[in-house]
Nucleic acid binder design. Structure first.
Length: 581
RNA sequence: GGCGCUAUCGUCUAGGGGUUAGGACGGAAGAUUCUCAAUCUUCAAACCCGGGUUCGAUUCCCGGUAGCGCUACCA
């Protein structure tokens, strides 16, 4: 931990003690304090403009963990103020993903149902003179901006427009956007709340003195991030951002802050892509008369190529439902995601939800982006990805249904964690999860048989879906064709294979079909034939399973039953005798 | 372009003014087993670069570089 970080934490503690000297009325006000939260209120606020990807899922998880760790409240808020881009499919994808994660939340809101509140707050800021109408048509700033060096600040003439003139044009029905009047150092602007000097920065000071302070020659906005520490930005680098669009809809910044204040959110835990937006948010909170919440920004999740996760570039590997459909256990995905950008700092990695909840703290969060080490999409899927661009998407948020086959596209650590969790499941539990997968693939399978097979595949699958390739031979009537050469044992030949299978046939026809008798009889046959045990077992295994790599032989034979085994051995002998047929 | 954030094995990370820089996944080798898997053992693998500060920097400071983010009437 570096000095800066230590400082921030120490200050947090100092702030806590400070609290007890606070006036009582301040403790009762809705946003009384940004650090003293016996019962924190946190929110996950996705906007339904795309499917739920793993980065969003991690944000949800961290918020949830923080709330549960401290006995607080988890809130789901749909930030759906961008009517143009919202889709029902995206909304469905978000709920589908969150439902599968199975963590739950305590309260739920939709921004589109709270527009009155947003507007009320926007106009209250306007009434204080801290916002103004901008009649410049939308996007007119682009041309102006392109040639300009540095940050674009505001449209010429808009900010200075007299109130009477502004009111007159608005009354005449001229469209306008409402912009925040970011305090500027030069000129007697209204609403400057800065103070000079004072104690060192801290959440306590941010709350007590206001975030806008004078520095030599400029005005600066301050806030203290629980992860990134003290943040300062000159107002000269913050443009007069919009609060209300010309259609009257609130912008993200306004709606988010208004709701965070109204819902008494104590901690805003979100992606680092909002770190620089936070200066604007702090400004809004202050202008509206609210104390800002405590902010904690999370390092971003990026693809192996270093770019941020996106469906278009990286395909379905970034969608939570892809993990579900591939046979991840939700607890494994959660565990994996927690390890990206956060560490319990004690070398523990495979952890239960309960353990994660106990161990979680904002102090364990890193500051650098983490790579989700999935394999880049193959040429084929890239093709379909570019097709998906031209064809208007109709599926769930544009997700492509066909799943990339196999386990090789996922981060190996996620797979390992999933395999660990699968092995940790009780046989009955695992079996119950495997059953619907087999059935969905068209196999007729009884719960009893599934229960018999589960222990045989448990240590051989990394994803639930792997059961389809690991256990298929238990269910098929006819084994899919395999290379007859597989039947020939190591350092053996066709003759040896035939000899073994012949012997096996006679043994299988009479022996009691239980593990121990089978083991004894078949093992004893090897020396009789003058072959090694391995040479004895391989042809039989391949004959009944249709492949070299399979679960232990005797257990497999028992599950398959005498008839199927006999039939398959006979079949194998036939193909060996007539390999060309 | 402006502003901001970040930089330890391939990946996720621990650590920190003096260490054999630790763990995990993945990789390699071996043990074990009827194959595979699981399990166990072992091995390879990292402090972005340049300046300072210091007896001593991978760690602290500055600069560079690179990556990422923001710079919308998107979120």
């Amino acid at each position: 931990m570096d000095a800066r970080r230590k400082l921030a934490i120490t200050r947090g503690i100092a702030g806590l003690t400070l609290l007890f000297f606070r006036p009582y009325h301040r403790m009762l006000s809705p946003m009384a304090d940004s650090f003293y939260h016996p019962r924190p209120r946190v929110r996950f606020a996705p906007s339904p403009t795309g499917f739920l990807h793993v980065g969003s899922a991690r944000t949800f998880i961290f918020n949830w963990l923080y709330a549960r760790h401290h006995g607080g409240t988890m809130i789901l808020r749909l930030d759906d103020t961008d009517v143009e881009r919202n889709t029902q499919a995206s909304l469905d994808s978000i709920f589908e993903g969150l439902k599968w994660l199975n963590l739950g939340w305590d309260e739920e809101y939709k921004q589109s149902e709270r527009l009155e509140l947003h507007r009320k707050i926007a106009w209250s800021i306007f009434e204080k003179g801290l916002a103004y109408r901008d009649f410049t048509p939308a996007h007119a700033g682009d041309a102006e901006k392109s040639g300009v060096q540095g940050t674009w600040l505001f449209h010429a003439g808009a900010r200075e427009l007299a109130r009477e003139e502004s009111d007159r044009r608005a009354a005449a029905g001229e469209p306008f956007a409402l912009r925040f009047r970011v305090p500027r150092p030069a000129g007697p602007e209204a609403g400057e709340t800065g103070v000079r000097g004072g104690p060192p920065p801290s959440p306590a000071r941010d709350a007590a003195e206001g975030a806008v302070r004078f520095a030599p020659g400029k005005l600066c906005v301050h806030f203290t991030d629980a992860v990134y520490g003290e943040q300062v930005k000159a107002t000269d680098d913050i443009e007069d951002f919009a609060l209300l669009r010309s259609d009257g809809m609130p912008t993200y910044h306004l709606a988010s802050c208004a709701d965070d204040a109204d819902l008494r959110i104590s901690h805003v835990i979100r992606g680092q892509d909002h770190l620089t937006n936070t200066f604007k948010h702090v400004l809004i909170f202050e202008a509206a008369g609210f104390t800002p919440p405590q902010f904690a920004h999370l390092p971003l999740l990026v693809a192996p190529d270093g770019t941020k996760l996106s469906k278009r570039r990286h395909g379905p590997v970034v969608s939570v439902t892809t993990y579900r459909d591939a046979g991840f256990l939700p607890e494994a995905l959660i565990n994996f995601l927690c390890l990206l950008g956060w560490s319990p700092k004690n070398d523990r990695e495979h952890m239960s939800l309960e353990e994660l909840k106990d161990a979680f703290s904002l102090a364990g969060i890193n500051r650098s982006n983490a790579v989700v080490n999935f394999k880049e999409a193959s040429a084929g899927s890239l093709e379909s990805a570019s097709q998906a661009e031209v064809i208007p998407s109709t599926g769930a948020a544009g997700e492509r249904k066909p799943l990339p086959a196999g386990t090789e596209i996922f981060d190996p650590k996620a797979l390992w964690l999933n395999a660990e969790d699968i092995r940790g499941l009780a046989v009955e539990d695992l079996s119950a999860r495997l059953l619907p997968i087999m059935r969905a693939a068209g196999y007729r399978v009884s719960p009893e048989k599934m229960l018999q097979i589960t222990p045989l595949v448990r240590e051989r699958i990394k994803l639930l879906r792997d059961v389809l390739t690991a256990a298929d031979f238990f269910f098929v009537v006819q084994l899919p064709p395999y290379d007859p050469a597989e039947l020939i044992p190591q350092k053996g030949d066709t003759a040896m294979a035939l000899k073994v299978l012949q012997k096996a046939q006679t043994i299988l026809s009479t022996v009691e079909f239980r593990h121990d008798p089978l083991d004894r009889a078949l093992r004893a046959a090897a020396p009789e034939l003058g072959v090694k045990t391995g040479q004895m077992f391989q042809p039989i295994r391949v004959a009944v399973c249709g492949r070299k790599n399979a679960p232990p032989l005797f257990e497999t034979l028992v599950v398959l039953g005498r008839d199927t085994c006999m039939e398959r051995v006979a079949q194998a002998m036939k193909t060996l005798e007539r390999p060309w047929a």
